[in-house]
Design a binder for these strands. Sequence first.
DNA 1: TCTGGGGTCCTAGGACCC
DNA 2: TCTGGGGTCCTAGGACCC
Length: 425
Amino acid sequence: MSFINNSRKKIALVDCNSFYVSCERLFNPKIRNVPVVVLSNNDGCVISRSTEAKALGIKMGEPYFKVKELVKKNNVQIFSSNYSLYGDLSRRVMRVLKGFSDKIEIYSIDEAFIDLSHIKDETTEEYGKKIRERVLRWTGIPTSVGISCTKTLSKVANHVAKKNKAGVIFLKENIDEILKNFEISDVWGVGRQLSKLYIKNGIDNAYKLKNISNTWVKKSTNVLGAKTVMELRGIPCIDLETEETKRKSCCVSRSFGKKVESLDKLKESITTHCLNAAEKIRMDKQTTRAVTVFIRTSPFDKNRKYYSNSITIELPVDTNNSLELVKTAINGLNKIYKYGYFYQKAGIILSKLKNSSEKELNLLTPILENKSKTLMKAIDFTNAKYGRNAISVAQAGINNDWKMRREHSSKIDTASFDSLPKISI
DNA sequence: TCTGGGGTCCTAGGACCC
DNA sequence: TCTGGGGTCCTAGGACCC
């Protein structure tokens, strides 16, 4: 057993400001100082807002149709999401951050935790500023940096840094004062349900949560609830995960651009999603052992009856063969499809993923595998070269009128020279 | 008319076994 | 017809995150 001096531990959370909006702004200087909003797939909800858009009262996650008027009146710039652009810029930001420490956890597309325990207290804030400056200079993306002794507290610090002009907070002293003004629902790990529970018991800010009894929190919540409380006290319970791990499941799902009634159309979408999921796990050199198919009608439509169902089918052997997976998925779909409903969303989950090197021996494996491997490789290669779905299966359909809406796409492709900003002199 | 998508982890409860 | 106790493993569903 080792004794660690917790007070010396130092974790920074670097978080990109309004990340998707910042990405769009990078290629379009005209939208730098005006309200901008990025919409989710299908142009459904607001998922990224510039400060100007936030000031107008546009909320995170709000359905687009509800703010359409506000958007028009204030000339808010609207963008459909462009994930390949955001993913590419994310990788650039992370590459810069890796230059500051090997001990880094890429937590999401726009955030990373970095271990800064080796930096002296006196220079920590300066170091945070250096991180911000370099990321901005090298990638053009603005960030905020929160530093403290646990992940949960560095999240708190980051939250405060977002509102502070310098964009950096090292939270070491006066922690309690900040926690007293920190809303319970903003604490990392406290979602809707826990908020409700805490508020019902008079715990409405982070300071009160920090000071509740261990027995109460363990009894009323679970181990994660207890960990959050410990972390607010400055005792690290959630480790930095510096190893890149492969995913354990892979989900591809979409809402339809317009509601779908027919089994044939559902088959097309499930086939398309399944092909994409299969390609993803092949890219990661993984195989799957179980396929889940799910379909559902809109939970918001009060005039029609709601139907949601899913089925999981175990495969006899681990595979990443597209054709086999599609066949299995369609079998599943046939079992859960019900006539007479207006479907809003369909999807597929591949689970029990394994490294494709972890082979299970089976009599037929060698013969089948060689054939399928060659075919899958050919498909992946062709699609990479000539665009996604250049080769597909017939069942995926060609005129997919159920496909999602993307009416406001910036169509920026960082792999294409056409997207480079032009300078006129 | 129009409400995203993709993950992880935890727990309760059932199945099964001795 | 009566009918124990304890352990493990698995899964579905829920809660959380961005």
